[in-house]
Write a protein that binds this DNA or RNA. Structure first.
Lengths: 188, 188
DNA sequence: CTGATATTAGTACCAAGTGCTAAAATGGTG
DNA sequence: CACCATTTTAGCACTTGGTACTAATATCAG
């Protein structure tokens, strides 16, 4: 069953979209036409040859190295801090923080900002996250400026434990809420 | 200034590691040797030819199995995946992942590994974290190899919701547990 | 100096193409 | 049905970036 030229070219595009690693010979076989026809089709649709297709796939992802979480102690920029009471940080979301596919910020960046703010607000030598509950209220997009505010809910000195709530907002709209139960110790 | 064979081969490896898109001719020129020498070097080091190198980079990134997320957007290395069922990734903790102060891995790296694994295991076009509860059971140190295993607990198609539990272990000892409630949509 | 190691040269061949010309098949319209 | 345009197929020379193999030189170490 042969397709019309139009249909075949449409299918060709879809096929190569799904899997660019197919030779003309292979395509010719699957579409029951000659290799030359496939070549003509590629010309008309300006689809590059196999090697170029592969190269572009490779180059694309090779250049687009996803930024891992930075080394700084705090993710985001602290703009206000009142030790053991509250702190505020801002993080500008760029295209490096989002999924290429849908432009939505990856959860761990919001978590990282909130968590490191929770660590920073604690006035102790050692602060570790013990437990946390997170709610991603609303998707954050590239270009958004996320303002995170950490509030110390309570501090139980005996248990070496502190409860902190972090609320992150974009243009005054809550996008993320996290409760952090922190373990803390003063050394010396 | 010619290098010794040993030095040249070492540099060759590094060069191609950084940029696999280089022809033998090009390499011959930069190392001031003949093309044949480069080929011999590649044989000895069992480095595949340009096209195969490019193909493997492309194939790697075009990971046919992982749909939700391009493979290099995953924090850690996925070593096994059974879509909608379970997945395993490993992350080697280096000094860049830990607090300089105490050598303990910062929570967001463990979260990032677990969360991105939860996203990857979902066989859908869009997967976002809605809520999560985390427990940091035991501190992780530089040098530790964290093995995270994500298990899909249930999938409610009507609610577009999936519950995933991720358990991370170091040398078979649980260091982190996270429950992720994920929002998922199939596009088309 | 000699032998081993390293390097270069040259040939035939391959895959997956491009670019070009030309013939054959097919299809729609009067 | 015939005719002309579109579509498809065929064939050939040439290209890149190699492999596989053989053979000739360089280079160095003892």
């Amino acid at each position: 069953m042969k397709y019309s030229k139009k249909d075949r070219q449409k299918l060709l595009l879809e096929t190569l979209e799904k899997n660019p690693f197919v030779t003309d010979e292979n395509l010719a076989f699957t579409f029951h036409v000659s290799v030359q026809t496939i070549r003509l089709d590629r010309m008309e649709l300006s689809i590059p040859e196999l090697r170029e297709r592969i190269k572009s796939v490779a180059a694309h992802n090779f250049g687009e190295e996803v930024k891992s979480l930075p080394i700084d102690e705090v993710i985001g920029e602290i703009i206000d801090i009142d030790l053991d009471k509250q702190a505020i940080s801002i993080l500008d979301i760029t295209k490096e923080h989002v999924f290429a596919r849908n432009g939505i910020a990856r959860g761990h960046h919001l978590f990282a900002q909130a968590n490191s703010l929770a660590v920073a607000v604690i006035n102790d030598d050692l602060a570790l996250t013990r437990k946390s509950t997170l709610t991603f209220v609303k998707p954050v997009k590239a270009g958004d400026r996320v303002v995170a505010k950490a509030i110390v809910i309570n501090s139980d000195a005996k248990k070496n434990s502190t409860l902190i709530e972090v609320t992150s907002k974009v243009e005054n709209e809550t996008v993320f809420v996290g409760q952090f139960s922190m373990y803390r110790v003063t050394m010396s």
